[in-house]
Design a protein around this nucleic acid. Structure first.
Lengths: 244, 244
DNA sequence: CGATCGGTTGAGAGAGATCAACGCAGGTGG
DNA sequence: CCACCTGCGTTGATCTCTCTCAACCGATCG
């Protein structure tokens, strides 16, 4: 299982020093790196590598030793967790600017698989933690982010525990829209790079229920299902359904 | 609503400098303070206050400005979140040694209510963050803790999304047992200071279902329901049911 | 062209919710 | 001291939302 992941990683990773530096990085201002000054960025840059993955490739697997940390600079990843008996839960999706390994864990608690072609900025763990020890600034930023993740996790718990299927799907669409907006991608059309099964496993539903709820929203002219995503027709009504 | 909380707080808090210092504090080694050396502890002690609450009193409310952070030194608190429409979710329970405000938030994302008589060690936010700026050590420790919280939150999401009522209740009992063990309170009898409704709101179930699952476990001689808690009769079978 | 994959739709079943009644302990006031 | 009330938990009957099982559709691909 893990060796399979290793394979995928080896095949996938066309590694190399970031050809265009951190200063011009498009996630510079929205990611943890924003905590750093010009010269600190140089230090960070020196220990970073760009890694590219094709869709369906695994960046790391649940339980793997966290030898490196990653900053997503392009594409979408799926973060999954497995139960011993095979049941799967999708903990979330990593977009542009998201940092994987925020809590500096010894081992990853989730698997990260590319849903689209992905590029990440890779930091060797040892070097990165060494940098952190020098720059409390950076740790502070990491901590802030972790706090935000914790809040999101709480939102998700509330959603999983106390909401109906319709509310779940509506909330999911709106939350994803929000996240895209936060990284400067506002649009009436929401791309859904993940499959229905992924959405289902994220919301604690079955694929059929997700499909039914989406078509119900479509029939009510609240959204329009389009190839690869949905278009928002009536955000007001959608928000009311989400009961956020 | 909030002013009500304020009232409760004012009535409840018999505040005062910790009469026995941090060095003798019983949560010293299991809490975030363990990151600090002797003299650093003195600094921390200087800015700490002991606060006592009766059962049913509110320490802080969801949305309140986080003017202070707390370390639980005795008792159990319930951490709840409300939906606009009144539905409630219990995010968790804070036991001895737990730190409230780990992520140094501007506002609390949950309400904290005492389920038993509680004492907490209170830190003024400004003073505490100032200390953090001086001692990266402490921030590191806080961050580790936050990472652990994040992992627990993920476990809980998996539980809420993908487990049956029976698995949820079994997992809950075992998880609480684990937490008590971690703070040095191992016993075949598990105290449940929270009500059935609290358990239900924590697991995304109704009070009736929780009650039914507990009596089912009781009838199967896996646990024994006793006043104020349960006694474990067959941990092996309980673990199998939890399907951890 | 058949095969495969992802998604949709329908019929039926089941886990858990809802509605309702009841029991019991603790508190309160006559 | 007893009657009453209230809060909490349990139990039963019924309902319903979502799951399960199954068929089907369209796109893509060898």
């Amino acid at each position: 299982m893990v060796s399979e992941h290793d394979d995928a990683r080896r095949r996938s990773c066309e590694q190399g020093r970031a050809e265009s530096g951190c200063a011009e990085c498009k996630v510079r201002l929205i990611s943890v790196c924003a905590a750093l000054t010009g010269e600190e960025l140089d230090t960070l840059e020196a220990l970073s590598q760009h890694v590219a993955l094709d869709a369906r490739q695994t960046l790391f697997g649940q339980g793997d030793a966290a030898m490196a940390l990653f900053n997503v600079t392009e594409g979408v990843l799926r973060l999954t967790r497995l139960l011993p008996d095979g049941r799967r839960h999708v903990m979330g999706f990593a977009l542009l600017g998201d940092f994987l390994g925020l809590s500096l864990p010894a081992h990853f608690s989730v698997s990260a698989e590319a849903l689209t072609p992905v590029t990440v900025c890779r930091f060797e763990r040892r070097a990165f933690t060494a940098l952190i020890d020098e720059k409390p600034h950076l740790l502070r930023r990491l901590h802030e982010r972790a706090g935000h993740e914790l809040t999101l996790a709480q939102d998700q718990m509330l959603l999983l525990g106390r909401r109906t299927a319709e509310e779940k799907v509506a909330s999911f669409l709106l939350a994803l829209r929000d996240r895209y907006a936060r990284i400067g991608r506002t649009s009436v059309t929401l791309e859904l790079p993940m499959g229905r099964q992924d959405i289902a496993d994220h919301l604690g539903l079955t694929i059929e229920t997700v499909s039914r709820m989406l078509t119900r929203l479509d029939r009510q002219r609240i959204i329009l299902i389009v190839p690869g995503g949905v278009r928002f027709l009536d955000l007001g009504r959608l928000e009311r359904l989400a009961a956020a």
